[in-house]
Design a binder for these strands. Structure first.
Lengths: 253, 253
DNA sequence: CGACGGGTTGATCGGTCTCAACGGGGGTGG
DNA sequence: CCACCCCCGTTGAGACCGATCAACCCGTCG
Protein backbone atom coordinates (compact mmCIF):
# COMPACT_ATOMS: atom_id res chain seq x y z
CA UNK A 1 0.00 0.00 0.00
CA UNK A 2 1.93 3.01 -1.24
CA UNK A 3 -0.83 5.60 -1.45
CA UNK A 4 -1.25 8.00 1.37
CA UNK A 5 -4.93 8.25 2.30
CA UNK A 6 -4.57 11.29 4.51
CA UNK A 7 -2.52 13.13 1.93
CA UNK A 8 -5.10 12.26 -0.71
CA UNK A 9 -7.90 13.52 1.48
CA UNK A 10 -6.29 16.81 2.37
CA UNK A 11 -5.08 17.40 -1.17
CA UNK A 12 -8.75 17.62 -2.15
CA UNK A 13 -9.02 20.83 -0.24
CA UNK A 14 -5.62 22.35 -0.80
CA UNK A 15 -2.50 22.15 -2.93
CA UNK A 16 0.01 20.71 -0.51
CA UNK A 17 3.70 21.58 -0.48
CA UNK A 18 6.31 18.88 -0.78
CA UNK A 19 7.18 19.34 2.86
CA UNK A 20 3.57 18.93 3.90
CA UNK A 21 3.08 15.81 1.83
CA UNK A 22 6.25 14.43 3.25
CA UNK A 23 5.11 15.09 6.79
CA UNK A 24 1.78 13.39 6.19
CA UNK A 25 3.46 10.32 4.76
CA UNK A 26 5.80 10.32 7.70
CA UNK A 27 2.77 9.70 9.91
CA UNK A 28 1.72 6.73 7.87
CA UNK A 29 4.42 4.23 8.50
CA UNK A 30 3.05 1.74 10.96
CA UNK A 31 0.53 -0.21 8.99
CA UNK A 32 -1.95 -2.62 10.43
CA UNK A 33 -4.71 -4.84 9.10
CA UNK A 34 -8.05 -5.33 10.80
CA UNK A 35 -10.51 -7.93 9.46
CA UNK A 36 -14.21 -7.09 9.21
CA UNK A 37 -15.95 -7.30 12.57
CA UNK A 38 -12.77 -7.02 14.65
CA UNK A 39 -12.58 -4.43 17.39
CA UNK A 40 -9.74 -1.92 17.24
CA UNK A 41 -10.23 -0.43 20.67
CA UNK A 42 -12.93 -0.56 23.31
CA UNK A 43 -14.77 2.23 25.03
CA UNK A 44 -12.83 3.26 28.13
CA UNK A 45 -9.61 1.52 27.12
CA UNK A 46 -6.44 3.54 27.64
CA UNK A 47 -4.62 4.65 24.51
CA UNK A 48 -2.10 7.13 23.18
CA UNK A 49 -2.63 6.18 19.56
CA UNK A 50 -4.62 7.45 16.64
CA UNK A 51 -5.53 5.66 13.43
CA UNK A 52 -5.76 6.74 9.84
CA UNK A 53 -8.01 4.60 7.69
CA UNK A 54 -6.24 3.40 4.55
CA UNK A 55 -8.77 0.87 3.28
CA UNK A 56 -12.25 -0.27 4.33
CA UNK A 57 -14.34 1.38 7.00
CA UNK A 58 -15.17 1.28 10.69
CA UNK A 59 -17.70 2.60 13.11
CA UNK A 60 -17.48 4.11 16.57
CA UNK A 61 -20.11 3.20 19.14
CA UNK A 62 -20.96 3.34 22.81
CA UNK A 63 -22.83 0.90 25.04
CA UNK A 64 -26.01 2.03 26.72
CA UNK A 65 -27.15 1.32 30.22
CA UNK A 66 -29.98 -0.88 28.98
CA UNK A 67 -27.60 -3.07 27.00
CA UNK A 68 -28.23 -1.35 23.70
CA UNK A 69 -25.68 0.37 21.52
CA UNK A 70 -25.46 3.68 19.72
CA UNK A 71 -23.28 3.93 16.64
CA UNK A 72 -21.97 7.48 16.71
CA UNK A 73 -20.12 7.79 13.42
CA UNK A 74 -18.38 5.97 10.64
CA UNK A 75 -14.75 6.26 9.63
CA UNK A 76 -13.85 6.08 5.96
CA UNK A 77 -10.60 6.13 4.01
CA UNK A 78 -8.58 9.21 4.93
CA UNK A 79 -10.39 9.75 8.23
CA UNK A 80 -8.39 10.02 11.43
CA UNK A 81 -9.81 8.56 14.61
CA UNK A 82 -9.08 11.65 16.68
CA UNK A 83 -12.66 12.23 17.72
CA UNK A 84 -13.01 9.83 20.57
CA UNK A 85 -9.50 9.62 21.88
CA UNK A 86 -7.32 12.65 21.40
CA UNK A 87 -8.82 14.74 24.17
CA UNK A 88 -8.47 12.03 26.79
CA UNK A 89 -6.09 9.27 27.79
CA UNK A 90 -8.71 6.72 26.91
CA UNK A 91 -11.14 6.09 24.11
CA UNK A 92 -14.67 7.43 24.47
CA UNK A 93 -16.00 4.88 22.01
CA UNK A 94 -15.51 1.37 20.68
CA UNK A 95 -14.06 1.25 17.19
CA UNK A 96 -15.00 -1.76 15.12
CA UNK A 97 -14.21 -2.66 11.51
CA UNK A 98 -17.23 -2.78 9.24
CA UNK A 99 -15.28 -4.21 6.32
CA UNK A 100 -11.75 -5.58 6.03
CA UNK A 101 -9.64 -2.62 6.97
CA UNK A 102 -6.12 -1.36 6.62
CA UNK A 103 -4.96 1.25 9.12
CA UNK A 104 -1.98 3.41 9.91
CA UNK A 105 -1.25 3.68 13.59
CA UNK A 106 0.26 6.91 14.85
CA UNK A 107 1.26 8.27 18.24
CA UNK A 108 -0.56 11.28 19.55
CA UNK A 109 2.82 12.94 19.99
CA UNK A 110 3.52 12.70 16.29
CA UNK A 111 0.14 14.22 15.58
CA UNK A 112 1.03 17.08 17.92
CA UNK A 113 4.30 17.66 16.13
CA UNK A 114 2.37 18.09 12.92
CA UNK A 115 0.74 21.20 14.36
CA UNK A 116 4.16 22.54 15.21
CA UNK A 117 5.94 21.78 11.97
CA UNK A 118 3.07 22.34 9.59
CA UNK A 119 0.63 24.76 11.18
CA UNK A 120 -1.29 25.10 7.94
CA UNK A 121 -2.08 21.38 8.10
CA UNK A 122 -3.05 21.78 11.73
CA UNK A 123 -5.52 24.49 10.81
CA UNK A 124 -6.82 22.42 7.91
CA UNK A 125 -7.34 19.43 10.17
CA UNK A 126 -9.22 21.72 12.52
CA UNK A 127 -11.48 22.76 9.66
CA UNK A 128 -12.07 19.19 8.58
CA UNK A 129 -12.85 18.20 12.15
CA UNK A 130 -15.33 21.04 12.36
CA UNK A 131 -17.07 19.96 9.18
CA UNK A 132 -17.40 16.50 10.69
CA UNK A 133 -18.98 18.10 13.70
CA UNK A 134 -21.56 19.72 11.48
CA UNK A 135 -22.21 16.38 9.82
CA UNK A 136 -22.85 14.98 13.28
CA UNK A 137 -25.18 17.87 14.00
CA UNK A 138 -27.12 16.88 10.89
CA UNK A 139 -27.43 13.35 12.19
CA UNK A 140 -28.61 14.74 15.52
CA UNK A 141 -31.36 16.59 13.70
CA UNK A 142 -32.24 13.58 11.62
CA UNK A 143 -32.50 11.29 14.61
CA UNK A 144 -34.26 13.78 16.83
CA UNK A 145 -36.94 15.03 14.52
CA UNK A 146 -37.69 12.69 11.65
CA UNK A 147 -39.42 9.35 11.16
CA UNK A 148 -37.85 5.99 10.46
CA UNK A 149 -37.91 6.11 6.67
CA UNK A 150 -36.28 9.53 6.62
CA UNK A 151 -33.59 8.50 9.07
CA UNK A 152 -32.66 5.44 7.06
CA UNK A 153 -32.70 7.35 3.79
CA UNK A 154 -30.51 10.07 5.26
CA UNK A 155 -28.03 7.51 6.53
CA UNK A 156 -27.85 5.83 3.14
CA UNK A 157 -27.29 9.16 1.41
CA UNK A 158 -24.63 10.11 3.93
CA UNK A 159 -22.75 6.86 3.56
CA UNK A 160 -22.95 7.04 -0.20
CA UNK A 161 -21.68 10.58 -0.15
CA UNK A 162 -18.72 9.60 1.98
CA UNK A 163 -17.86 6.59 -0.11
CA UNK A 164 -18.00 8.85 -3.14
CA UNK A 165 -15.42 11.27 -1.82
CA UNK A 166 -13.27 8.50 -0.62
CA UNK A 167 -13.54 5.50 -2.90
CA UNK A 168 -14.23 7.50 -6.01
CA UNK A 169 -17.58 5.74 -6.06
CA UNK A 170 -19.11 6.87 -9.31
CA UNK A 171 -22.72 5.90 -9.34
CA UNK A 172 -25.27 5.18 -6.69
CA UNK A 173 -24.74 1.48 -6.12
CA UNK A 174 -22.71 0.42 -3.14
CA UNK A 175 -22.18 -2.45 -0.81
CA UNK A 176 -23.46 -1.91 2.71
CA UNK A 177 -21.92 -4.55 4.97
CA UNK A 178 -24.09 -3.68 7.96
CA UNK A 179 -26.82 -5.74 9.55
CA UNK A 180 -30.21 -4.15 10.01
CA UNK A 181 -29.43 -4.21 13.69
CA UNK A 182 -26.36 -2.06 12.97
CA UNK A 183 -28.42 0.38 10.94
CA UNK A 184 -30.86 0.59 13.81
CA UNK A 185 -28.07 1.26 16.29
CA UNK A 186 -26.90 4.09 14.05
CA UNK A 187 -30.24 5.85 13.56
CA UNK A 188 -32.01 4.94 16.77
CA UNK A 189 -34.52 2.35 15.60
CA UNK A 190 -35.07 -1.32 16.42
CA UNK A 191 -34.07 -3.83 13.79
CA UNK A 192 -37.72 -4.64 13.32
CA UNK A 193 -38.52 -1.12 12.38
CA UNK A 194 -35.41 -0.75 10.26
CA UNK A 195 -36.71 -3.59 8.19
CA UNK A 196 -40.10 -1.98 7.76
CA UNK A 197 -38.52 1.36 6.94
CA UNK A 198 -36.31 -0.23 4.30
CA UNK A 199 -39.34 -1.91 2.80
CA UNK A 200 -41.18 1.37 2.75
CA UNK A 201 -38.21 3.06 1.12
CA UNK A 202 -38.14 0.39 -1.57
CA UNK A 203 -41.84 0.88 -2.11
CA UNK A 204 -41.18 4.46 -3.15
CA UNK A 205 -38.99 3.11 -5.93
CA UNK A 206 -36.16 5.45 -5.01
CA UNK A 207 -34.05 2.74 -3.42
CA UNK A 208 -33.43 -0.90 -4.33
CA UNK A 209 -31.80 -3.67 -2.34
CA UNK A 210 -30.25 -6.96 -3.31
CA UNK A 211 -28.90 -8.53 -0.19
CA UNK A 212 -26.56 -5.95 1.23
CA UNK A 213 -26.06 -4.04 -1.99
CA UNK A 214 -27.90 -0.75 -2.16
CA UNK A 215 -28.91 1.14 -5.26
CA UNK A 216 -30.26 4.64 -4.99
CA UNK A 217 -32.21 5.22 -8.17
CA UNK A 218 -32.70 8.95 -7.87
CA UNK A 219 -30.27 10.56 -5.49
CA UNK A 220 -31.50 14.09 -6.20
CA UNK A 221 -35.09 13.33 -5.48
CA UNK A 222 -34.36 11.27 -2.39
CA UNK A 223 -32.10 14.02 -1.03
CA UNK A 224 -34.82 16.55 -1.69
CA UNK A 225 -37.40 14.36 -0.01
CA UNK A 226 -35.47 13.97 3.23
CA UNK A 227 -33.76 17.38 3.15
CA UNK A 228 -30.28 15.90 3.03
CA UNK A 229 -27.29 18.23 2.90
CA UNK A 230 -23.90 16.95 1.81
CA UNK A 231 -21.29 18.28 4.21
CA UNK A 232 -18.35 16.37 2.83
CA UNK A 233 -17.86 18.14 -0.45
CA UNK A 234 -15.72 21.13 0.40
CA UNK A 235 -14.06 23.07 3.15
CA UNK A 236 -13.10 26.74 3.23
CA UNK A 237 -9.34 27.18 3.19
CA UNK A 238 -9.02 30.90 2.57
CA UNK A 239 -8.34 31.61 6.23
CA UNK A 240 -5.45 29.18 6.61
CA UNK A 241 -2.01 30.56 7.39
CA UNK A 242 0.63 30.18 4.67
CA UNK A 243 2.65 26.97 4.52
CA UNK A 244 6.06 26.97 6.16
CA UNK A 245 9.11 27.73 4.04
CA UNK A 246 11.08 24.80 2.74
CA UNK A 247 14.01 25.27 5.10
CA UNK A 248 11.76 24.55 8.05
CA UNK A 249 11.27 20.97 6.96
CA UNK A 250 11.75 18.79 9.95
CA UNK A 251 10.13 15.75 11.43
CA UNK A 252 11.40 15.90 14.92
CA UNK A 253 9.73 19.06 16.24
CA UNK B 1 -14.51 44.00 30.48
CA UNK B 2 -10.82 43.31 30.93
CA UNK B 3 -10.84 39.56 31.46
CA UNK B 4 -10.05 37.32 28.57
CA UNK B 5 -12.58 34.51 28.42
CA UNK B 6 -10.68 32.39 25.92
CA UNK B 7 -7.46 32.76 27.84
CA UNK B 8 -9.27 31.79 31.03
CA UNK B 9 -10.77 28.75 29.38
CA UNK B 10 -7.54 27.47 27.87
CA UNK B 11 -5.57 28.20 31.01
CA UNK B 12 -7.71 25.56 32.72
CA UNK B 13 -6.05 22.93 30.62
CA UNK B 14 -2.54 24.28 30.34
CA UNK B 15 -0.11 26.79 31.77
CA UNK B 16 0.11 29.35 29.01
CA UNK B 17 3.23 31.30 28.14
CA UNK B 18 3.18 35.07 28.12
CA UNK B 19 3.33 35.05 24.35
CA UNK B 20 0.36 32.72 24.13
CA UNK B 21 -1.70 34.76 26.53
CA UNK B 22 -0.81 37.84 24.61
CA UNK B 23 -1.88 36.27 21.34
CA UNK B 24 -5.23 35.22 22.77
CA UNK B 25 -5.91 38.70 24.08
CA UNK B 26 -4.94 40.07 20.73
CA UNK B 27 -7.90 38.19 19.26
CA UNK B 28 -10.26 39.75 21.74
CA UNK B 29 -10.32 43.36 20.77
CA UNK B 30 -13.51 43.96 18.88
CA UNK B 31 -16.20 43.74 21.50
CA UNK B 32 -19.88 43.60 20.83
CA UNK B 33 -23.03 43.35 22.90
CA UNK B 34 -26.02 41.21 22.00
CA UNK B 35 -29.23 41.44 24.04
CA UNK B 36 -31.12 38.28 24.97
CA UNK B 37 -33.16 36.93 22.09
CA UNK B 38 -31.24 38.76 19.37
CA UNK B 39 -29.86 36.84 16.45
CA UNK B 40 -26.14 37.05 15.76
CA UNK B 41 -26.15 35.36 12.40
CA UNK B 42 -28.63 33.34 10.41
CA UNK B 43 -28.29 29.93 8.86
CA UNK B 44 -26.89 30.29 5.33
CA UNK B 45 -25.70 33.85 5.80
CA UNK B 46 -22.22 34.59 4.46
CA UNK B 47 -19.55 35.37 7.04
CA UNK B 48 -15.81 35.47 7.59
CA UNK B 49 -16.07 36.10 11.31
CA UNK B 50 -15.94 34.05 14.47
CA UNK B 51 -17.14 34.95 17.92
CA UNK B 52 -15.79 34.34 21.37
CA UNK B 53 -18.39 34.46 24.12
CA UNK B 54 -17.36 36.82 26.93
CA UNK B 55 -20.59 36.94 28.92
CA UNK B 56 -23.97 35.24 28.71
CA UNK B 57 -24.81 32.37 26.41
CA UNK B 58 -26.24 31.54 23.00
CA UNK B 59 -27.54 28.62 21.05
CA UNK B 60 -27.06 27.42 17.50
CA UNK B 61 -30.03 26.00 15.63
CA UNK B 62 -31.28 24.98 12.20
CA UNK B 63 -34.73 25.20 10.63
CA UNK B 64 -36.45 22.04 9.55
CA UNK B 65 -38.45 21.42 6.44
CA UNK B 66 -41.65 21.09 8.42
CA UNK B 67 -41.18 24.49 10.05
CA UNK B 68 -39.70 23.11 13.24
CA UNK B 69 -36.33 23.89 14.69
CA UNK B 70 -33.46 21.85 16.10
CA UNK B 71 -31.16 23.45 18.63
CA UNK B 72 -27.80 21.87 18.00
CA UNK B 73 -25.62 23.22 20.78
CA UNK B 74 -25.13 25.97 23.29
CA UNK B 75 -22.24 28.39 23.50
CA UNK B 76 -20.98 29.47 26.91
CA UNK B 77 -18.32 31.88 28.12
CA UNK B 78 -14.98 31.02 26.55
CA UNK B 79 -16.51 29.10 23.63
CA UNK B 80 -15.64 30.04 20.09
CA UNK B 81 -18.29 29.81 17.41
CA UNK B 82 -16.07 27.95 14.98
CA UNK B 83 -18.32 24.93 14.67
CA UNK B 84 -20.84 26.15 12.16
CA UNK B 85 -18.85 28.65 10.17
CA UNK B 86 -15.14 28.07 9.91
CA UNK B 87 -15.29 25.29 7.35
CA UNK B 88 -17.51 27.24 4.96
CA UNK B 89 -18.02 30.77 3.75
CA UNK B 90 -21.41 30.80 5.36
CA UNK B 91 -22.91 29.81 8.65
CA UNK B 92 -24.46 26.35 8.92
CA UNK B 93 -26.65 27.45 11.82
CA UNK B 94 -28.49 30.39 13.32
CA UNK B 95 -26.85 31.79 16.43
CA UNK B 96 -29.17 33.44 18.92
CA UNK B 97 -28.50 34.94 22.34
CA UNK B 98 -30.18 33.09 25.19
CA UNK B 99 -29.25 35.73 27.76
CA UNK B 100 -27.72 39.19 27.43
CA UNK B 101 -24.42 38.50 25.80
CA UNK B 102 -21.03 40.11 25.30
CA UNK B 103 -18.94 38.86 22.39
CA UNK B 104 -15.56 39.34 20.82
CA UNK B 105 -15.63 39.35 17.07
CA UNK B 106 -12.61 37.99 15.22
CA UNK B 107 -11.67 37.45 11.60
CA UNK B 108 -11.11 33.91 10.42
CA UNK B 109 -7.70 35.07 9.15
CA UNK B 110 -6.62 36.05 12.63
CA UNK B 111 -7.73 32.66 13.89
CA UNK B 112 -5.62 31.05 11.18
CA UNK B 113 -2.59 33.06 12.18
CA UNK B 114 -2.94 31.69 15.68
CA UNK B 115 -2.18 28.22 14.34
CA UNK B 116 0.93 29.58 12.68
CA UNK B 117 2.29 31.65 15.54
CA UNK B 118 1.21 29.44 18.40
CA UNK B 119 0.89 25.88 17.17
CA UNK B 120 0.49 24.59 20.68
CA UNK B 121 -2.66 26.67 21.01
CA UNK B 122 -3.82 25.39 17.64
CA UNK B 123 -3.41 21.83 18.83
CA UNK B 124 -5.15 22.64 22.11
CA UNK B 125 -8.07 24.21 20.26
CA UNK B 126 -8.24 21.06 18.18
CA UNK B 127 -8.46 18.98 21.34
CA UNK B 128 -11.15 21.20 22.82
CA UNK B 129 -13.12 21.05 19.60
CA UNK B 130 -12.87 17.28 19.66
CA UNK B 131 -14.15 17.11 23.21
CA UNK B 132 -17.13 19.19 22.12
CA UNK B 133 -17.70 16.70 19.38
CA UNK B 134 -17.86 13.93 21.93
CA UNK B 135 -20.31 15.99 23.96
CA UNK B 136 -22.44 16.24 20.85
CA UNK B 137 -22.16 12.50 20.38
CA UNK B 138 -23.52 12.10 23.90
CA UNK B 139 -26.49 14.25 23.00
CA UNK B 140 -27.02 12.17 19.88
CA UNK B 141 -27.21 9.08 22.05
CA UNK B 142 -29.50 10.78 24.52
CA UNK B 143 -31.90 11.95 21.86
CA UNK B 144 -31.81 8.77 19.85
CA UNK B 145 -32.27 6.20 22.53
CA UNK B 146 -33.83 7.57 25.69
CA UNK B 147 -37.25 8.77 26.84
CA UNK B 148 -38.36 12.30 27.51
CA UNK B 149 -37.54 12.48 31.19
CA UNK B 150 -34.01 11.22 30.60
CA UNK B 151 -33.41 13.64 27.75
CA UNK B 152 -34.50 16.62 29.79
CA UNK B 153 -32.50 15.52 32.81
CA UNK B 154 -29.42 15.00 30.67
CA UNK B 155 -29.79 18.45 29.16
CA UNK B 156 -30.13 20.04 32.58
CA UNK B 157 -27.05 18.23 33.84
CA UNK B 158 -25.09 19.22 30.76
CA UNK B 159 -26.00 22.88 31.03
CA UNK B 160 -25.23 22.91 34.71
CA UNK B 161 -21.89 21.29 34.09
CA UNK B 162 -21.01 23.89 31.48
CA UNK B 163 -22.10 26.81 33.62
CA UNK B 164 -19.98 25.34 36.38
CA UNK B 165 -16.80 25.34 34.35
CA UNK B 166 -17.52 28.72 32.99
CA UNK B 167 -19.35 30.82 35.55
CA UNK B 168 -17.75 29.19 38.53
CA UNK B 169 -21.25 28.06 39.43
CA UNK B 170 -20.81 26.44 42.82
CA UNK B 171 -23.98 24.61 43.68
CA UNK B 172 -26.76 23.13 41.68
CA UNK B 173 -29.12 26.08 41.36
CA UNK B 174 -29.10 27.99 38.11
CA UNK B 175 -31.25 30.20 35.97
CA UNK B 176 -32.47 28.64 32.75
CA UNK B 177 -33.75 31.39 30.48
CA UNK B 178 -35.25 28.99 27.94
CA UNK B 179 -38.90 28.39 27.16
CA UNK B 180 -40.19 24.85 27.26
CA UNK B 181 -40.46 25.13 23.51
CA UNK B 182 -36.71 25.84 23.40
CA UNK B 183 -35.99 22.84 25.58
CA UNK B 184 -38.10 20.73 23.26
CA UNK B 185 -36.22 22.01 20.21
CA UNK B 186 -32.98 21.02 21.91
CA UNK B 187 -33.92 17.48 22.91
CA UNK B 188 -36.43 16.61 20.23
CA UNK B 189 -39.72 16.77 22.09
CA UNK B 190 -42.84 18.89 21.73
CA UNK B 191 -43.37 21.57 24.31
CA UNK B 192 -46.34 19.64 25.60
CA UNK B 193 -44.22 16.66 26.37
CA UNK B 194 -41.39 18.77 27.76
CA UNK B 195 -43.85 20.01 30.31
CA UNK B 196 -44.94 16.53 31.29
CA UNK B 197 -41.35 15.37 31.46
CA UNK B 198 -40.40 18.26 33.73
CA UNK B 199 -43.32 17.45 35.96
CA UNK B 200 -42.27 13.83 36.09
CA UNK B 201 -38.72 14.87 36.92
CA UNK B 202 -39.96 17.03 39.75
CA UNK B 203 -42.04 14.15 41.01
CA UNK B 204 -38.85 12.17 41.58
CA UNK B 205 -37.73 14.90 43.96
CA UNK B 206 -34.34 15.14 42.27
CA UNK B 207 -35.14 18.42 40.53
CA UNK B 208 -37.07 21.50 41.61
CA UNK B 209 -38.32 24.43 39.56
CA UNK B 210 -39.37 27.91 40.47
CA UNK B 211 -40.22 29.71 37.32
CA UNK B 212 -37.10 29.42 35.22
CA UNK B 213 -34.76 28.70 38.07
CA UNK B 214 -33.66 25.09 38.33
CA UNK B 215 -32.39 23.31 41.38
CA UNK B 216 -30.88 19.87 41.11
CA UNK B 217 -31.15 18.36 44.55
CA UNK B 218 -28.93 15.36 44.04
CA UNK B 219 -26.64 15.71 41.06
CA UNK B 220 -24.86 12.43 41.69
CA UNK B 221 -27.99 10.39 41.80
CA UNK B 222 -29.58 12.09 38.82
CA UNK B 223 -26.40 11.63 36.78
CA UNK B 224 -26.36 7.97 37.77
CA UNK B 225 -30.01 7.58 36.86
CA UNK B 226 -29.65 8.93 33.34
CA UNK B 227 -26.08 7.72 32.75
CA UNK B 228 -24.71 11.22 32.28
CA UNK B 229 -21.00 11.69 31.57
CA UNK B 230 -19.37 15.06 32.06
CA UNK B 231 -17.16 15.76 29.07
CA UNK B 232 -16.19 19.29 29.97
CA UNK B 233 -13.95 18.67 32.89
CA UNK B 234 -10.57 17.99 31.39
CA UNK B 235 -8.65 17.54 28.18
CA UNK B 236 -5.44 15.60 27.60
CA UNK B 237 -2.56 17.92 26.81
CA UNK B 238 0.39 15.55 27.03
CA UNK B 239 0.59 15.20 23.26
CA UNK B 240 0.78 18.91 22.49
CA UNK B 241 3.94 20.27 20.89
CA UNK B 242 6.06 22.59 23.03
CA UNK B 243 5.23 26.31 23.02
CA UNK B 244 7.23 28.54 20.70
CA UNK B 245 10.32 30.30 22.03
CA UNK B 246 9.91 33.88 23.13
CA UNK B 247 11.74 35.36 20.16
CA UNK B 248 9.06 34.06 17.84
CA UNK B 249 6.44 36.33 19.34
CA UNK B 250 4.59 37.95 16.52
CA UNK B 251 1.03 38.86 15.69
CA UNK B 252 1.29 39.33 12.00
CA UNK B 253 2.15 35.81 10.85
C1' DC C 1 -28.19 -32.11 10.38
C1' DG C 2 -28.72 -28.96 13.94
C1' DA C 3 -27.51 -24.43 15.64
C1' DC C 4 -27.21 -19.83 14.79
C1' DG C 5 -27.46 -15.23 12.99
C1' DG C 6 -29.90 -12.32 10.06
C1' DG C 7 -34.10 -11.09 7.61
C1' DT C 8 -39.19 -10.86 7.44
C1' DT C 9 -43.81 -10.48 9.11
C1' DG C 10 -47.74 -10.16 12.48
C1' DA C 11 -50.04 -8.54 16.89
C1' DT C 12 -50.10 -5.73 20.66
C1' DC C 13 -48.36 -2.11 23.79
C1' DG C 14 -46.82 2.29 25.09
C1' DG C 15 -44.55 6.77 24.67
C1' DT C 16 -44.96 10.85 22.23
C1' DC C 17 -47.48 13.83 19.01
C1' DT C 18 -51.45 16.33 17.82
C1' DC C 19 -55.23 18.99 18.76
C1' DA C 20 -57.57 21.55 22.01
C1' DA C 21 -58.65 24.37 25.82
C1' DC C 22 -57.63 27.24 29.81
C1' DG C 23 -54.91 30.10 33.19
C1' DG C 24 -51.62 33.41 34.52
C1' DG C 25 -48.42 37.11 34.16
C1' DG C 26 -46.25 40.82 32.02
C1' DG C 27 -46.27 44.20 28.58
C1' DT C 28 -48.89 47.54 25.79
C1' DG C 29 -52.19 50.72 24.49
C1' DG C 30 -56.16 53.18 25.59
C1' DC D 1 -54.44 52.85 35.83
C1' DC D 2 -56.89 49.57 33.85
C1' DA D 3 -58.10 46.39 30.09
C1' DC D 4 -56.55 43.72 26.88
C1' DC D 5 -53.68 40.53 24.65
C1' DC D 6 -50.22 37.52 23.79
C1' DC D 7 -46.86 34.35 25.13
C1' DC D 8 -45.92 30.75 28.05
C1' DG D 9 -47.12 27.10 30.99
C1' DT D 10 -50.43 23.53 32.02
C1' DT D 11 -53.72 19.81 31.40
C1' DG D 12 -56.80 16.58 28.85
C1' DA D 13 -58.25 13.21 25.05
C1' DG D 14 -57.28 10.60 21.14
C1' DA D 15 -54.28 9.14 17.28
C1' DC D 16 -50.04 7.27 15.66
C1' DC D 17 -45.32 5.76 15.25
C1' DG D 18 -42.13 2.78 16.77
C1' DA D 19 -41.06 -0.70 20.57
C1' DT D 20 -41.84 -5.16 22.16
C1' DC D 21 -42.83 -9.87 21.82
C1' DA D 22 -43.24 -13.65 18.96
C1' DA D 23 -42.94 -16.65 15.22
C1' DC D 24 -40.95 -18.38 10.97
C1' DC D 25 -37.73 -18.49 7.02
C1' DC D 26 -33.36 -18.86 5.04
C1' DG D 27 -28.36 -19.50 4.36
C1' DT D 28 -24.12 -20.70 6.53
C1' DC D 29 -21.18 -23.10 9.30
C1' DG D 30 -19.72 -26.48 12.51
Amino acid sequence: MSDSPLEARLAQYLTLTFAERDALRWLERRERALPAGEILIREGEATDRLYIVARGWLHGSVKLKDGGRQILRFYFVGDISTTFSIAWGQSAATLQAVSDTQLFEIEKDAFGRLFRNHPRLGALLFAVSTSEQVAMADRLTSIGRTDGVTRIATLLLDIRSRLRVVDGLDGSVFSLPLTQQDLGDAVGLTKTHVNRSLKALEATGLVERQGRVIRINDVERLAEMVDFKDRHGSVATDWLPPPVARSDMDHTG
